[in-house]
């Protein structure tokens, strides 16, 4: 297979950046999207050109490092799939594919397709945890958890923090990410003592960091590689309202 890639190239944070086209040849349909970029990069290095920078690590859809807009869709056209697991068999031979970095003010572009997502870490640091110092826990069976709570909590806990929700949201909101964490902990008995403070603090940090507000567009959940449901946002809002004096 062969493709034409239109890729956003930006030298560093201060560069204005531009779209550049590259042909890639000899792509096997079994390759992942990132393996195709590897092929392009090796070629660029050989030619003495600057390879395309992109974040990636585990290449099995769990670390959340990779992420880019592929033809205007976060992580590309395949539902519930990260860019690293997106296989080229989903594209037609000869396609032109546009590749851009996540766009949001709190996610500054570092280089090409690499963006700074440390804002997510700040949201977690402001409350996305259960305070329990090592060694202080009671026996694991001291608190039974119904399977339904455990399942619902798990559904939210699978968030990989990739940032696709922000990239896709027309408002540039990180509500799905924030709510997924708050819901994961808020649905478990262990998360109860800090539940309302957690929700309030995380949302306060979210807003301070410059993310947009949620207007229930549902783009986030549509592109989420882990299919986190929009309901986590309802749960977060409930905790927020409850926490208000």
């Amino acid at each position: 297979m062969r493709f034409t890639l239109r890729i956003w190239r930006q030298r560093d944070r201060d560069d204005t950046g531009a779209m550049v086209s590259y042909p890639v040849d000899h792509v096997s349909p079994d390759m992942s999207f990132l393996e195709m970029l590897d092929v392009l990069n090796e070629e660029l290095v050989r030619r003495g050109e600057e390879p395309v920078a992109f974040d990636h690590d585990c290449r099995e859809g769990i670390c959340g490092a990779c992420g880019m807009m592929i033809n205007g869709m976060a992580h590309g056209p395949q539902r519930a799939t990260t860019a690293c697991q997106l296989s080229m068999r989903h594209f037609a031979d000869g396609d032109t594919i546009t590749v851009e970095p996540w766009r949001a003010r709190p996610f500054g572009v570092i280089k090409d397709l690499v963006v700074d997502r440390s804002a997510f870490d700040r949201i977690i640091a402001s409350g996305g945890y259960v305070s329990v110092p090592a060694g202080s826990a009671p026996d694991a069976h001291a608190l039974p958890v119904s399977t339904s709570s455990a399942e619902a909590s798990f559904e939210a806990a699978v968030c990989i923090g990739c940032g696709a929700c922000v990239a896709a949201c027309p408002n540039g909101s990180a509500m799905l990410f924030t709510a997924a964490k708050a819901t994961h902990l808020g649905l478990l008995p262990q998360g109860q003592p800090e539940r309302y403070v957690r929700a309030a603090e995380m949302v306060r940090t979210h807003d301070e960091l410059g993310f947009g507000g949620c207007t229930s567009m549902g783009e986030c959940t549509a592109v989420c590689p882990k299919s986190i449901p929009l309901d986590v946002i309802s749960r977060l809002n409930r905790d927020l309202l409850h926490g208000q004096p």
Binding site: M19, M69, G212, A222
Partner: peptide, 17 residues
């Protein structure tokens, strides 16, 4: 929303919502 996304995408698929 405008502040949160000062740069627009060159290629944007219509919103699914």
């Amino acid at each position: 929303a405008h502040r949160a996304r000062p740069f627009r995408y060159r290629h944007r698929r219509p919103v699914l919502g």
